[in-house]
Amino acid sequence: MRRQKNKFFTIVVGLIILFGSQFNTHAQTCSCAAAPLFDPIEYSTLKDRKWRFELSFKYHALNDLVEGTEKVVDDTDRTRTSQFLMLDVRYSLSRNVTLRAVFSFARQYRDVGISSAAPVSTNGLGDSMLSIQYSPIHYSPKNLTEVALGGGIKFPVGHNDARIIGIASEDMQPGSGSWDTLIWGYASHLLLPGNGFEVFGGVSARFNGTNSRDYRFGNEVIASLGSRLLTKNNLGIALYGRYRWADYDKRFNGNVPNTGGQWIYIVPSITINIQRDWGIKAEVELPVYRKLNGFRQFTTTYLASVSVFYLI
């Protein structure tokens, strides 16, 4: 049994590495193309002095061309994807305080179907984040509510001068090249403790800095609300909605046209806890409503991710 589980673990890691090894060409951007380092529903607390590692692969297809709220036909037959390999490391100093670091490797890809030109892509280290989380209230036999607050800094270690002949556009860069600040809050409540059914919600805000080319990605706010059921056979099923608001990107103190807007996604997610100390998770983020700034924008078609996590 144990051998089988180890084999399964190896296969999962192998798949992620296989996807990751595709990162060998070039990069591309839009106001949704940055590495999704912060997931407001992933702030649940760890037990004292515990490590948690999560390795994930995210595939972000940005092929929907949207004019305001309407999806329109893209007559250039463009394919735009972002792929991220992310390592999320957490360590709990105590039940109340958790340190967290996220590292990413990004690949941006762009192909204009009507062009005879070859697709272009960039890749390199993406954005990384260091953060601290304080959990004043956490689950206990007497307490069915958990609350966490946190803040962090996203630092510009990523590759930010990738070229596609000239300097690649900002959305095609693997890293944003700016120091950003994040804050968030998270709360969950167990409705049916015996059955492991909880509702949760989280809000995060990101205040972006300006990079060396005087470009600043739009500040954003993300709010999520959903529910999660942990079954007795260690299967976690979650469904939540996510609202995202992003301001216009800025350059030279002015708005960059056709950036920013509002999005609502629905996110089904499934977690399989293979053993007590590790498991896998898969989820897909699907847009259900968009109201985008400017004339037209390419934006999320879907964001799929698969990850493996490990507790020590």
Partner: peptide, 11 residues
């Protein structure tokens, strides 16, 4: 000083 505008060649 050349910049990629974003839409790509023939974009």
């Amino acid at each position: 000083q050349i910049r990629d505008g974003g839409p790509g060649k023939d974009g």
